[in-house]
């Protein structure tokens, strides 16, 4: 076997081992370089947290994985983003299909101005699934997974906007779970919520990790240390340190990481 073949076999087995991969990724918004050459590998069925001060590229980087940056006007990217070993920026990739396999939860809960049922069923409906019984079962199981079922089961036709902030966010999570994605991206999902709702959602994330790969951007370091397995510290568009959460928060390698963790800046 030639050296080249050996290398590519090793490379592809590494690719398969990691659910999400970034290779030397650079991002520009117009002239501003938001991400300055980031590489990282994320394993499946783990919770990975991105921490770091505002504006350091965490959300931008997160959105590379479901290509939500495509909608921003001056967005430009170099480098490779792989999911399950495949380059998602390849011309042949159907971006909508990609997004159906990845769920996203936003900072401010954004339920559709429709009923609770229609919210959760939306992802299935746009795939053409119409069978009423199937939809009802999926909606029920998704709402149960986020512990919302008991609170809303009596009136699924109620408007989603009538729910509280915490309930709305759990509804948004249920919405993404309904299509059974393998990856869930969360962009500061609890920063707009009260402590009780936050606690409920953190509990939820911890449970979901068995079935899903979760990446969460958070401003809240305590949250990161509570729920994540690995943590990446972003600063000014670069990853300063990326390691097991335990290590990052008790014995970081880099001085900058320690400074941020201990609150000397941020």
């Amino acid at each position: 076997m030639s050296k080249k073949n050996k290398e590519s076999i090793i490379e592809s087995s590494i690719k398969r081992k990691y659910k999400l991969q970034a290779k030397d990724v650079k991002v520009w918004y117009g002239d501003f370089m938001a991400i300055k050459g980031v590489s990282m590998d994320i394993k499946a069925n783990k919770v990975t947290a991105f921490i770091g001060p505002s504006g350091c590229g965490k959300s931008t980087f997160l959105r590379l994985f479901n290509r939500m940056n495509d909608y921003v006007d001056d967005f430009k990217m170099e480098g490779e983003i792989n999911i399950d070993g495949k380059d998602i920026n390849n011309k042949n990739i159907n971006v909508e299909l990609l997004r159906k396999q990845i769920g996203m939860v936003f900072q401010k809960p954004n339920p559709f101005p429709k009923s609770i049922f229609e919210n959760v069923a939306y992802g299935l409906q746009i795939q053409g699934l119409k069978d009423k019984k199937f939809l009802q079962e999926r909606v029920e199981s998704s709402l149960k997974q986020v512990a919302l079922w008991d609170e809303v089961k009596d009136d699924l036709n109620k408007s989603a906007l009538a729910l509280s902030g915490g309930q709305q966010q759990r509804l948004c999570i249920a919405r993404t779970l309904a299509v059974e994605p393998s990856i869930i991206l969360m962009d500061e999902p609890t920063s707009a919520l009260d402590p009780i709702s936050t606690a409920k959602i953190e509990e939820l994330i911890y449970k979901l990790k068995d079935k899903y790969t979760i990446v969460i951007v958070t401003h809240n370091m305590q949250q990161a240390s509570r729920i994540s397995d690995t943590t990446a510290f972003f600063y000014l568009g670069e990853i300063i340190e990326y390691d097991k959460t335990n290590k990052i928060f008790t014995n970081p390698e880099k001085q900058q990481t320690e400074n941020y963790i201990t609150g000397r800046f941020g």
Partner: peptide, 24 residues
């Protein structure tokens, strides 16, 4: 935010217009 949520779920532009924007 409604558009974001719809696109993030893999809806196409027309699906987003037809199912979300026009009713709203």
């Amino acid at each position: 935010s409604i558009r974001d949520a719809s696109f993030a779920m893999g809806a196409s532009k027309w699906q987003t217009v037809y199912h979300q924007l026009l009713p709203a």
